[in-house]
Structure formats: C-alpha cells, structure tokens
C-alpha cells in the first residue's frame, strides 16, 4: 500500500513535469503549426540560469531569473530562427528547430563545460504521508504543476488573449480578419511555453541536483511523446499525456524486471496509441473544408 502510494505520488509529480513541458510543445504546435524541438533545451538553459544565480544564495531570485531569461530566449529564438521561415515547408522549420537545439546544447557546453554541475536549490527532506515515505520535492512539484495548469486553462478560456490563441490555432486567416495580430499571439505562446520549461528545469533540479548540457534532451522527447499521446495541439491532452507517461514511468521503475526497459515501454505506448488512435486521446480530426 505504502509502495503504491509513494509510486503514485512520484508518478504524478514526474507526470506534472512532463505535462508542463508538453504544454509548451502542444501550444506552439497548435498556434504556429510547428514542432519546436529546441523546447526541451530551454529546460536545460533554465537549469543553468538557476545554477548561476544560486551564487546569490537566493533561490527565489534564481527561479525568477530563470523564468525571465527563458522567456526572452524563447521569444528571440522565435524571432530569429522561426519567424523568417513562416510559410516555408514544415521540413525546413523542423530542421531549423533541431539546429537550434544543438546550438543551445553546444553553447552550454562551451560556457559551462561538459562536466555536470551540482546545484541544490532547496533542501527538502521527506515526510510520512499515510504511512508512505514521500519526497517533499515531489509534493511541491505536484502542487505547483496543478496550480499552473489551472491558471493556464483559465487564461486560455477566459481572457481576450487566450481566446485569440484558440482562434489562431483554429484558423489563422479568420483570426486575422477579427483583427488579431497573429505574430503577437505566436510571441506570447513562445513566452508562455518557455516560462513553463524554465519551471520544469527547476523541478528537475529538485529531483536530482545535477545539470549537464543534455539535461533537456530526454525530458524534451518524453514530453513530446506525452503531447502526441494526449493529442498534439490540445492543452488538456498535453496534461493528460504528461500525467499518464509520468505514472507509467514511475511504476515501471519500481518493477525490477522491467525497470531497464522503461524508456522503451513509454515509446511503445506512443507507437501503440498512434496505431490505434492517430490523433491521440484528445486530439481532433482535421476537418476537411467542404
């Protein structure tokens, strides 16, 4: 029982992190119709910014700086690398995104070296929760991700900018005819996605306090998987896919016999879901124009 509970909480918090990253993928895809494969590396950048500003011994300042820096970075990447390719073939955009990903990883390696850096943001212990030993960092992660997801849902549903985002994701041309500045909405989307990635970087450091220049690579791919499982372009889908993947991963790690195959199991789930339901759980079928 205790084992189940602690595994579940682990899974939920890991899933929360995946969901946060997946939201960045899915929102950018929904609005700019591109896969931003450099998104995972923003997590790594966020981690390094926290590492640098932890020199001040002020974790809140470090987190704030990470969010600010990642937001600016996300906007700059969009303006410099992706905006000139608007209307270009999706393949060109995809290759550019992969290029940006390698650029960020290499820059981090040049600046910080290839050895991993240690950074402890907060000293959390563990607590007894209904008899189970639970990491406090997991609970914090879970709580923050839930708050973030609620805020994001309300933002999209209830604000003028949020509705404009829905409009742009559905029909860019019609959105323009409403007077919506599509470029501005895309910028806002990249800013939101990057701030979530910065927070994800924080949560990774809470889980394991080491950072390398490839920190974001695997979480990026996992979160992308989560976004596709949930239905790429769908915000609740990204949340669902992220949580699902996190729980599967946590359970799989606890079972000794299959633990080494955890990644393989997760990506197999992706393949199976793509075979059975190509649009993902909550993805919509592309409506053909009548």
């Amino acid at each position: 029982m205790e084992l189940i509970l602690s595994t579940l909480i682990n899974g939920l918090s890991l899933g929360g992190i995946y969901a946060m990253i997946a939201l960045g993928y899915t929102m950018v895809y929904g609005i700019a119709k591109m896969l931003n494969f450099a998104h995972g590396d923003i997590i790594m950048v966020g981690g390094y910014v926290i590492y640098v500003f932890m020199a001040t011994q002020n974790p809140l300042l470090a987190i704030l700086m990470a969010v600010v820096f990642c937001v600016i970075l996300g906007i700059v990447i969009e303006k410099v690398a992706y905006k000139p390719l608007r209307g270009a073939s999706p393949l060109a955009v995809l290759i550019t995104a992969i290029g940006v990903s390698y650029l960020l990883q290499s820059l981090a390696q040049i600046i910080f070296g290839s050895a991993s850096k240690m950074v402890t943001v907060f000293e959390f212990g563990s607590v007894k929760f209904l008899g189970a030993n639970v990491q406090i960092s997991s609970l914090v992660t879970l709580a923050v991700t839930i708050v973030v997801m609620i805020c994001l849902t309300l933002f999209v549903k209830c604000t003028r900018v949020g509705r404009a985002m829905i409009a742009v994701s559905e029909d860019k041309g019609a959105a323009q005819l409403m007077g919506i500045n599509v470029n501005r909405i895309i910028t806002i989307t990249f800013a939101i996605g990057s701030s979530l990635a910065a927070l994800a970087g924080l949560f990774y450091l809470l889980k394991a306090p080491t950072i390398t220049n490839t920190l974001g690579a695997m979480p990026g791919i996992k979160a992308f998987t989560a976004a596709v499982i949930g239905g790429i372009g769908s915000i609740p889908g990204a949340m669902l896919g992220g949580i699902l993947l996190g729980i599967v991963e946590a359970i799989s790690y606890k079972i000794t016999a299959i633990a080494p195959y955890t990644d393989a199991i997760e990506f197999s789930i992706l393949i199976i879901i793509l075979l059975v339901r190509p649009t993902g759980f909550l993805g919509k079928k592309r409506r053909e124009k009548v």
Partner: peptide, 19 residues
C-alpha cells in the same frame, strides 16, 4: 466558406468578432 471558429460556441464567435 464562412470560416467561423468551429470549436467555439456561437456566443464566443461573436465575442471574437468584437476583438
């Protein structure tokens, strides 16, 4: 082809019109 926002409600579409 009208291009209304298919996933929004009638009311929300009108709201978008007043953007």
């Amino acid at each position: 082809g009208r291009r209304i926002f298919q996933e929004l409600t009638v009311y929300e579409n009108l709201l978008m019109g007043a953007y």
